[in-house]
Design a protein around this nucleic acid. Structure first.
Lengths: 241, 241
DNA sequence: TCAAAAGTGTTCCGAATACACCCATGC
DNA sequence: GCATGGGTGTATTCGGAACACTTTTGA
């Protein structure tokens, strides 16, 4: 890796230092859902810069690991969360976005099935907390922008792909599903029509189970059938709410 | 930028070298359209590695310029193209994607109004050429993947946002527009219905001009009204073909 | 007058909407 | 019984698909 200069002769100033002078980090917007509220997991920084500020789940990346693995590792190191939905959206590269130097960050977003447990395993963070997306604190770095873009991505994604189920327990009622969509998209749906539409897709498996401990008629529980979705998708079906 | 170590104490091996050992590049999938064919602009590499191979419009990025500016510069340096549609899609970060070391690349795609002119201004490339997207040569690096992802992004984008117009001349006929959509999406549309739908959106301004030199009834020319689109968008209108 | 493409109108069908209504459970 | 949410059925409306048709030009 000595004379990378020769690989790109049209740029005049590609010394080795220039070629190698980027830091790379990953910032992950972790979304959760509980009691009708869409939430984001943030950590409180216990170190400078932005000590005491809230921030996204993020860290620098080691050059020895590829991007997708790095994202999983960051998430698992800082929260203990593994094997959950994790997808790249946008890369942020303003010159001054990190006070320590030029750091590019790749934005990921993640969807968690339950916000009940405290997901922090071990980290340099003082604490972690779920925040309602409509009531966020000030964030470190440019994390406000990143979170905003991530939320946009979620809103778009949830309409055309069956990713909403990643935020619900495996077994859920149709009303829970509808409430989730209403919370994310900020609108309301007609209950009978929502049922017809979602059941008509033939993607939900009705279970022989109902809610319990509710002071009204208990609702049937359903489960998302991923195999079925993949099969339908191959035939040209497109999920659309 | 001496002791970045202290900023991220949960990672054990963040020496300065590790923090700073990423190369950053931009690869841009430049799309064009001509005579019913969707095309991609490629350059023939005149230097190692992959000398003689075709590659996307791409180059290393200097740490002193931000990501969006870098993308414009790469495009303009290698093709002379300026002020055209340019948008980020995905970032690629496999460990071994560049033989010279760890280089992350941010994928952009660009839409060009005419593939008629030879867009190469000056570069380290032997030549440049427009290739039909259905008849591509072998590509350098992981550019096959990047191009594929870029094409996916274009297909999705063209359906829900009025970006198709970026590939047509300012004045165009409805059939040209329809042919463009059919070429990109790989399907056919019913002519009367396509007209009704697109005109019903109220986004096209009919000009007092017609085609010339055609051996049939000349078609009216239209123009895309961007102001109108932005206005409608604010009212909640979503472009959809 | 013919070919070729521009451009219009009309019917039909299915999906989305808007509601009205009944059902099961806890208190 | 009654409050609460679960669950079903139906009439209406709207947009898209299919397709038949007329118009205008060059050769």
């Amino acid at each position: 890796m000595d004379n990378t200069e020769t690989y790109y002769t049209n740029q005049t100033s590609h010394s080795i230092q220039n070629l190698l002078s980027f830091g790379l980090s990953i910032d992950c917007v972790v979304f959760g859902y509980h009691n009708g509220e869409v939430k984001v997991l943030l950590i409180e920084r216990d170190i400078e810069p932005f000590k005491g500020s809230w921030a996204l789940i993020g860290d620098l990346v080691s050059p020895s690991v590829d991007l997708a693995s790095a994202a999983s590792e960051v998430l698992s190191n800082l929260t203990g969360l593994k094997n959950i939905f994790l997808e790249q959206f946008t890369t942020f590269g303003s010159i001054d976005r990190h006070p320590a130097g030029r750091v590019i960050t790749v934005g990921y977003y993640s969807l968690v099935k339950s916000t009940a447990q405290k997901p922090l395993a071990s980290s340099w963070a003082k604490s972690s907390k779920w925040f309602n997306i409509n009531n966020l604190p000030n964030l470190a770095f440019d994390h406000q922008d990143i979170l905003g873009k991530g939320l946009e991505t979620l809103k778009r994604g949830v309409r055309y792909r069956p990713v909403g189920f990643e935020l619900l327990p495996h077994k859920f009622t149709l009303l829970q599903l509808q409430d989730l969509y209403e919370a994310i998209l900020g609108c309301t749906f007609d209950k009978p029509n929502f049922r017809k539409k979602i059941l008509g897709m033939d993607l939900l498996v009705p279970l022989n189970e109902v809610e319990s401990n509710v002071s009204h008629r208990p609702a049937k529980l359903f489960q998302f059938d991923r195999e079925r979705y993949l099969h339908l998708q191959e035939e040209g079906f497109v999920f659309d709410i």
